[in-house]
Design a protein around this nucleic acid. Sequence first.
DNA 1: AAGGATCTTGAACGTTCGTTCCATACTCGG
DNA 2: CCGAGTATGGAACGAACGTTCAAGATCCTT
Lengths: 193, 193
Amino acid sequence: MPWEKQFNVDEALGKAMEAFWAHGYEATSMQDLVDCMGINRGSLYATFGDKRSLFVQALRRYDAIHRHDWAAAISRSRSPRQAIVGIFEDAIAVVLNTGTRKGCLLVNTALELSPHDDEVSRIVEHSFSEMETFFSGKIEAGQAIGEIPDTVDPTETSRALLSLFIGLRVLARSRPEEALLRSIAHQADAMIA
Amino acid sequence: MPWEKQFNVDEALGKAMEAFWAHGYEATSMQDLVDCMGINRGSLYATFGDKRSLFVQALRRYDAIHRHDWAAAISRSRSPRQAIVGIFEDAIAVVLNTGTRKGCLLVNTALELSPHDDEVSRIVEHSFSEMETFFSGKIEAGQAIGEIPDTVDPTETSRALLSLFIGLRVLARSRPEEALLRSIAHQADAMIA
DNA sequence: AAGGATCTTGAACGTTCGTTCCATACTCGG
DNA sequence: CCGAGTATGGAACGAACGTTCAAGATCCTT
């Protein structure tokens, strides 16, 4: 009968996710992954398959934690309008508090791999689409309770908020200045006021 | 005395720019560049230096043509407000007409290299900063001739437009759907109406 | 206690990477 | 018309790439 793995699979995948997040797909070598995941080459291939397969698993995990779970958590504790604003504010807070320039793995991947990899493209598209739905759903819910004006078009505005949010993530990685980021969050709020 | 080069340096650099634009820095090999530039390895190194140096030259060239010259051309033929809208519309037109998913080399680079390369980061920051200045300048000019309401804050709005524009470029590369892109341009217009 | 199944380990694979170098082709001033 | 000097073409470099594999270590079942 099998011998249990000596490492935590989820934990190792989390380390891989961080590496891809920080350096991108191409710039992260298998040696980098072996080092940062703390497991052996053989174990890595036996558990996660090849590099691309590992990346896809890391990307799905990122989407689950940093998009799905995050949106769900914010929905639980805030009103519709405050949930929208909160998404922007939280993203900014991470940049300012941690000082990291990792941005968002999904956005990074949208540029690096989406144009050339169909499976990856589908994951990114689905995630972006869900973000859009999150925004439009919140707008409609906010309008239902009178928190957001009826003059706001849920479809058009949710797409603009998605674009604004993606822009924020790009700038957070390339030009992480507080005033700049805050202006963007402020304008997002103005769109639904 | 020297023997003149048998290839056009500007033309070759243009080909390199296209390659980096389409596939990114890491995913473009020197062999790819030798093939697409149509010149020999030796000539390539003698003329442009190493890979990173070639990339920086290609990036500067991209910035000159697709940001500086483009903004200048649009400023010449349109009113301030129409210049802002035109930037968004032109970007969309390129996606829809050519069907390419290259996005914008500066935005692609902001994610792939900016966090890890200071010189590249400075080029990208300068370019983004100039875009911001373009927007705020147009807003003020539009306000001066009564084309844009005085209630619009030039500083805040120009930053939001920059973020919106960057988001558009990301989506153009990962999810090039006409309705989505048009909504973003429409909301950009609404910001200055 | 022994056998078998799985995980671990690290060396090794062939390929591709970015880069260098040299013999050859060529132009132009003397 | 010849020699100085640059561009060209392609072979070759060592390093790093992603991937595979065989041998040893470990635990569970019988």
